[in-house]
Amino acid sequence: MPVTLLGASEIRALAAEIEVTPTKKLGQNFVVDANTVRKIVQAAHVTSADRVVEVGPGLGSLTLAILESGASVTAVEIDHRLAARLPATVAAHGVPDGALTVLDADALRVTDLPGDPTVLVANLPYNVSVPVLLHFMETFEGIERGVVMVQAEVGERLAAPPGSKVYGAPSVKAAWYGPWRLAGAVSRQVFWPVPGVDSVLVGFQRDPQPRGDEALRRATFEVVDAAFGQRRKMLRQALAPLLGGSAAEASAVLTAAGVDPTARGEQLTIDDFVAIARARGRGA
């Protein structure tokens, strides 16, 4: 599809036209480099057969690169001015009618997506990246895979293995849905305005079979939050309030789950946390 991508000068001109000044509150850092947005689309292996959801399309840099692949796009944008301008921008750059659907909404409140997207590709606002990802994975089971650009520190946490210094609650909760991987670094110089932090691409693939039902997910996440709420403590202490009230009672549940009561949360896999949630449910 012959699509013209946005350049730095055109992005600034578009922003001026609709009187948009990038705000930290909305996490707006617009990508002004065509090579970078193409890199994101390639990392996500987007094809013309894909239905893509993009969160925070902004002025349309990444949107156009996704549409260039021939895929259809549902774009979720919280800024009313940007949402209103996006269709005209993509039409002016060679995209046919019907390829783009714009949802003027807060991504954290969206519960229905037109077109039933199966791929998530986005430059996520730094301040809400993890909540948005977890909300979309929980709410839209049809999303099978994706690549998102996030703050480097956040991306490293999402992809961290057990035992890593940055392994934490986001790592475990993301792993509930499937494996995550770092898919490349992104220079801060490709953004306008230039952020004070580096960015990375993070890819994910949803497991073919769900790890459990919604009740088990909630129970597991409750254990995860308790374990990392006091991450320096042994699990028998950190989980005591949740698993009976005493270290001895917590130890009994942990032992029934096949987990060492003297371990710490950062040592456990997602399967370990699931086992604890199941054991707790059995009243072990």
Rank of each mutant, 00 (worst) to 15 (best):
M137S: 12
N123A: 10
P208I: 14
P131S: 00
G203I: 11
A152W: 13
I143M: 05
T139D: 11
V130H: 13
L235S: 01
H135V: 00
E222Y: 00
R231P: 08
L124K: 01
R181I: 14
R157G: 01
M149S: 04
G212N: 07
S171A: 10
L133F: 02
Q205V: 15
Q230C: 02
D207W: 11
P193N: 12
V128R: 14
P170E: 01
V197T: 09
V223S: 04
S129W: 02
F204L: 08
Q189L: 15
I143V: 11
V190P: 09
V166I: 07
A240F: 03
A169L: 03
Y177S: 03
W176Y: 11
G163A: 10
M234W: 08
G168L: 14
P193D: 08
R206N: 05
L235K: 05
R188N: 09
L239R: 03
Y126K: 09
R217D: 06
V186T: 11
V147I: 07
M149F: 04
W180Y: 05
L182V: 11
P161Q: 09
K165L: 14
Q205W: 15
E214V: 08
S164G: 15
M234Q: 14
A159W: 02
P179A: 01
A169N: 08
D207G: 14
V128K: 10
Q151R: 09
V200I: 03
N123S: 02
N127Y: 14
Q209T: 15
P170A: 07
F191L: 05
I143E: 08
F136Y: 11
P162S: 04
Q237M: 15
L201Y: 01
K233M: 01
H135I: 10
A185F: 13
Y167I: 04
R217M: 10
Q209K: 15
Q205N: 13
Q209A: 15
R157S: 01
